[in-house]
């Protein structure tokens, strides 16, 4: 969820899906059920830009669309309210409460991910313990644009995530006109990841300008390319697989601001083997989450 996100197109502009699948006729209803060919877990989603007055209602909208495209489960992050830079501890708690309510209502379809403002270390660690250590959440992030992630302010949070073996999803961007204030780049994340080689970091959006983002994280093996939340530009996933290996590429959508459809297309439409698609669409995320899910007795 980039810092300069403007009004999502609320109320307006608000197959042969791969070589391995059967050819599609002229009707979309004839399209193969992708979920029957691949398990699909979405590492990056929000409740923003969706109809509904409650977290449960908005989650129901997501589930309806997940069903249409065969998405088994998603990881839900903050975003019920308008994007707020530098949120107060109360605002952070409220966002996490929305996520936990949505997940509680759809326990078979979603896990929660922890929102924090790393500028406030004490309350971040309290919130970590409330929602992740002692609560139902399973990972950290999307960490937003409240502080650049190479800051030492991230260190205590990362150390706590490492202790639980929980991955961290960090928003990153490389904007042509320059990043927003306190917006992280993939290079910032690489700095953090090199300080914490036992940490597992998902580079949200792979910097948006993915040709540079992929190069930036290439030599840092504990950073994974998150493909969510950019236009479905052809070649993204092929390059990521070529440069990083399929084991380091993770599907996410950035719904509701994005469609599941446009983001899934990056994988389904890529000229890569089905075995690579399996890893990207679910296998890698399930592997990263396995220790946490096991510790919490949750299914994977």
């Amino acid at each position: 969820m980039p810092i300069d996100r403007r009004t999502i197109l609320k109320g307006f502009v608000s197959g042969a899906l791969s070589a391995g699948l059967p050819a599609m006729g002229n009707s979309i209803s004839e399209a193969p059920d992708i979920g029957k060919h691949f398990r699909i877990w979405d590492a990056h989603s929000h409740l923003e830009g969706l109809p509904g007055n409650t977290a449960e209602e908005r989650m129901a909208v997501l589930v309806r669309h997940m069903d249409r495209l065969g998405i088994e489960r998603l990881i839900l992050s903050q975003g019920f309210g308008e994007h707020m830079p530098y949120p107060t501890p109360a605002q952070v708690r409220e966002e996490n409460d929305h996520v936990m309510r949505a997940v509680k209502h759809f326990p078979d379809r979603a896990y929660g991910s922890l929102y924090l403002n790393p500028r406030d270390t004490a309350s971040s660690l309290q919130e970590f313990d409330r929602c992740l250590l002692n609560g139902p959440m399973v990972m950290v992030g999307e960490l937003e644009t409240d502080v650049r992630c190479n800051s030492p302010l991230l260190d205590p949070i990362v150390e706590r995530a490492i202790a639980m073996n929980a991955p961290i999803l960090q928003h990153t961007w490389i904007a042509a006109g320059g990043n927003g204030r306190d917006e992280s780049s993939p290079a910032d994340l690489v700095e953090l990841a090199r300080r914490h080689p036992k940490g597992k970091f998902i580079c949200g959006h792979t910097g948006g300008t993915w040709e540079l983002g992929i190069r930036t994280i290439r030599d840092t093996p504990n950073v994974y390319a998150g493909i969510a939340g950019s236009d479905p530009v052809s070649g993204f996933v092929e390059m990521a697989v070529r440069e990083l290996g399929a084991e380091r590429v993770i599907f996410g959508s950035d719904a509701g601001g994005r469609t599941f459809a446009s983001q899934m297309a990056k994988v389904i439409g890529a000229d890569i083997p089905d075995s690579a698609k399996e890893l990207i669409l679910a296998g890698n995320l399930r592997r990263l989450l396995a220790p946490v899910l096991r510790a919490k007795g949750l299914p994977s």
Binding site: G15, L17, M24, N26, S27, I28, S29, A31, R64, H65, R68, L69, D231, P232, V233, S234, T259, F260, A261, S262, M264, A265, K266, I268, G269, A270
Partner: peptide
């Protein structure tokens, strides 16, 4: 420029009735 499947999957995700889908496609 875009993966073709993006448009295709958007149609599938929209849950349109058959007439509407045929008109769109």
């Amino acid at each position: 420029f875009f993966y073709f499947e993006a448009a295709l999957l958007k149609v599938k995700s929209a849950g349109l009735a058959q007439d509407g889908r045929a008109a769109l496609l």
